[in-house]
Simulated scan of single mutants.
Amino acid sequence: MAVSKRKAYGGKVESFVKKCERSLAAAGWAHGLPAAAVAFLSLIWAPLSKGAFRHLRAGCPLDGAEELRFACYFTYFRWNRRPIVFEILSHRVGVELTEAEYALFLERSRALEAQGFRVVRITDVELAYARKHVYERAAYAMSRSGWGDEGWGTAI
Results as ranks from 00 to 15, higher is better:
residue 3 V to K: 13
residue 3 V to F: 15
residue 5 K to P: 02
residue 7 K to C: 14
residue 8 A to M: 15
residue 8 A to N: 15
residue 10 G to E: 12
residue 11 G to E: 11
residue 11 G to R: 11
residue 14 E to S: 09
residue 14 E to L: 13
residue 16 F to I: 04
residue 16 F to M: 01
residue 17 V to Q: 00
residue 17 V to G: 06
residue 19 K to L: 09
residue 20 C to K: 08
residue 20 C to N: 08
residue 24 L to Y: 00
residue 28 G to E: 05
residue 28 G to V: 06
residue 30 A to N: 07
residue 36 A to I: 00
residue 37 A to Q: 04
residue 38 V to L: 01
residue 39 A to D: 14
residue 41 L to S: 03
residue 42 S to G: 09
residue 42 S to M: 01
residue 42 S to F: 05
residue 46 A to L: 11
residue 49 S to F: 04
residue 50 K to P: 01
residue 52 A to W: 15
residue 55 H to P: 01
residue 63 D to P: 13
residue 63 D to E: 14
residue 64 G to L: 12
residue 64 G to E: 10
residue 66 E to G: 13
residue 67 E to H: 06
residue 68 L to K: 09
residue 68 L to C: 06
residue 69 R to D: 13
residue 71 A to L: 06
residue 73 Y to M: 00
residue 75 T to L: 01
residue 78 R to E: 13
residue 78 R to L: 13
residue 80 N to R: 08
residue 80 N to L: 12
residue 80 N to P: 07
residue 81 R to D: 07
residue 81 R to G: 02
residue 81 R to N: 12
residue 81 R to H: 08
residue 82 R to C: 05
residue 83 P to F: 02
residue 86 F to P: 00
residue 86 F to D: 01
residue 91 H to I: 10
residue 94 G to M: 05
residue 94 G to T: 05
residue 95 V to R: 13
residue 96 E to N: 03
residue 97 L to D: 05
residue 100 A to S: 14
residue 101 E to W: 03
residue 103 A to H: 11
residue 104 L to M: 10
residue 108 R to P: 03
residue 111 A to N: 09
residue 111 A to D: 11
residue 112 L to S: 01
residue 114 A to P: 15
residue 115 Q to W: 10
residue 116 G to L: 03
residue 120 V to N: 06
residue 128 A to E: 15
residue 129 Y to P: 08
residue 129 Y to V: 13
residue 131 R to T: 09
residue 131 R to K: 07
residue 133 H to Y: 15
residue 134 V to P: 07
residue 135 Y to W: 14
residue 135 Y to G: 13
residue 135 Y to S: 14
residue 136 E to W: 04
residue 137 R to I: 10
residue 138 A to L: 03
residue 138 A to Q: 00
residue 140 Y to Q: 13
residue 141 A to V: 00
residue 142 M to N: 08
residue 143 S to K: 09
residue 144 R to V: 10
residue 146 G to H: 09
residue 147 W to M: 05
residue 149 D to P: 06
residue 150 E to H: 10
residue 150 E to R: 10
residue 152 W to N: 14
residue 153 G to H: 05
residue 155 A to H: 12
residue 156 I to S: 14
